[in-house]
Design a protein around this nucleic acid. Structure first.
Lengths: 352, 352
DNA sequence: TTGAAAGCGCTAACAG
DNA sequence: CTGTTAGCGCTTTCAA
């Protein structure tokens, strides 16, 4: 019955190579002072036998587990479901890769009820994605004195934390510049009232950009509940103005698709009457009609940075800086191709 | 530097409770013949001290790792990226929960280069999602004699495998019935040429349904490369017929959004001129204009079944049946609200 | 009903 | 330069 193929132990390798287990251990870990010839022979034998050190034994000895956790944010409302944004899946994948490079296993954690749950997993550390103020996940790591890196942050003094964030301010300025270059006269922002740096920094940068360019800010905030009515209220506040914007940057994805829908209902064409950019790229952004100009958050880089920081922290090594800002990439698509030129109907989008 | 709070060992619990480590072990695992009073006292002490057995020590002793892996399918083309379908993220989350119930950690694996990579993770078993013919992931598990459960299958003799699949045949019939009830006269199917049971069973069921209802099958297969041209070719074969369908069931998500786009370009309204249903629910399906009728694959149930099967296999217990078919749920939306009634423009979609 | 002790595979302190 | 050995925390014989 599916008994796992018994893997060779360090003792068998030692016997096969005609040396002691110590020598094998040293050879494989590059530790002691060994004759080069011996070392290479041992390594060769170990490879030939398909030897891999037993993680449990190694962990028992070292007190480490070589396991780290990634905690994705949960969707508000639906209790156990993570937010379905492609970025998170990308971040997960990239984190797995990065962890693997450090020979760490990466586990997903279920929604944690208590610090006890965290203990059961025997982690060396964790990465908490998009923490909110007083995030219980963060508190648990602190209580257990477990190494922690956050991706995204909500903190007034972020530089004291081990944190990786996307460059929200730079993204916002780039998007505004892009829209202005496409002919936008009045650029608005439709975003949400959540204290993640991704949103707050974006708002601040937007206001700064407006000040620099002599434009009055046109800002509309949706409630954070992700409800359709919140979206519609916020969109209405934007479009019902006497002087509605002809360009809108919408950081959260759900508001961007909502804006597109409402615009369609009102007969406002995109990009003819209004151009739109969204803050996170996704299949959804690519698949709308028209496809939405979006921001690539560079999940692989963020994951790499987060895992690297975590490994440093676990090892007790210094890391300077502990606070990393990852640049983003603008992906121009049809939704910002040019404002003020009504597209000639659906035929425009044909690429055959 | 972030030393992990040292957790109490079984010895400290024993000392605190005034018994031997053996007694503690027996009490906690319900093993030996212990006085009830002693057992309860030990348990109480252990709880009070926040004791959790060290996974490494236990694993070293038992030869198990209490770790299972989930392997999601990779997107064709983009090398290391999983397919961005909400279903997979749901499946992942639900699997984590189910694993947790069995006190197993669930790790994500990076794309595996060789069986050696698999060995490095010290797994008790794994779940391979949507295996293809001669899937190397499956082969690696077999080579290592590691317990394996597949979610989805491609096999002619699936009942010999440990497998969980969604009820593709039932889904197809339900969708066709639904469309017929909404006034569809000629139901077509737009799908893809991949040998996953999800697709092959769906095609067979569709042809069966057509035979039962005296309708000629209208089937168009896209190439599997997920390219825009593949989509356009397949859609054209459907719409350019002298007798195009007035309803289309589209199992793969990327083809459904493609069909919607092309229909828009051609001035075909949905659901007025044609109704459309997609085989997998997602944010994309909910967010299109109009929202797409879709199928909920019940990821939580599939995950639970898969993990349960895997645990049985690992424990060497029998499981009957080894082959589980999970029912799906149709989610009717506007895209199939009624065919043959041209909607009166965008206003129809307003729900304010 | 309880306890002493061996041993899982590995690393590292110490001895040679 | 290489080997012997203790011991990480746990489960499980075996003995009392």
């Amino acid at each position: 019955m599916a008994r796992r193929q018994s893997r060779p132990s360090i003792r068998e390798v030692a016997k096969e190579a005609g040396v002691s287990v110590t020598t094998v251990s040293h050879a494989l870990n590059g530790k002691g002072r060994l004759d080069t010839v011996t070392r290479e022979r041992v390594i060769e034998v170990a490879n030939r036998m398909g030897y891999h050190p037993n993680r449990n034994a190694r962990g028992l000895r070292s007190g480490r587990t070589d396991t780290i956790a990634l905690l994705l944010p949960l969707a508000p409302g639906r209790r156990r479901q993570p937010i379905e944004i492609d970025f998170y899946l990308e971040l997960l994948t990239a984190s797995v890769d990065a962890a693997f490079q450090h020979d760490q296993a990466l586990v997903q954690l279920p929604p944690l009820e208590s610090a006890g749950d965290l203990h059961r997993f025997a982690l060396d550390g964790g990465i908490v994605v998009d923490p909110v103020r007083d995030d219980p996940r963060v508190a648990m790591f602190h209580d257990l004195e477990l190494p922690l890196v956050t991706v995204g942050n909500h903190d007034a003094r972020p530089h004291e934390r081990w944190t990786v964030i996307a460059d929200s301010a730079g993204t916002t300025r780039t998007m505004c510049d892009h829209m202005a270059a496409k002919g936008a006269q009045r650029i608005g922002m439709l975003t949400v009232d959540i204290d993640w740096s991704w949103f707050t920094d974006g708002i601040a940068a937007y206001q700064g950009w407006c000040a620099d360019h002599g434009q009055e800010p046109i800002l509309s905030l949706a409630r954070r509940d992700k409800q359709e009515t919140s979206m519609r209220d916020a969109v209405a506040r934007l479009l019902d103005r006497p002087d509605p914007p002809d360009a809108v940057f919408v950081p959260p994805q759900w508001l961007a698709s909502g804006l597109l829908t409402v615009a369609g209902e009102r007969g406002i064409t995109v990009p003819g009457d209004m151009i739109i950019g969204v803050g996170v790229d996704s299949g959804l952004a690519r698949g709308t009609q028209p496809p939405l100009t979006a921001v690539d958050l560079n999940a692989p880089v963020m994951a790499q940075q987060a895992v690297d920081l975590l490994m440093k922290q676990i090892a007790g090594e210094p890391a300077a800086p502990r606070f990393r800002v990852v640049p983003t990439t603008l992906l121009p698509r049809e939704s910002t191709s040019r404002v003020g030129v009504r597209p000639r109907g659906p035929g425009l989008t044909g690429r055959s």
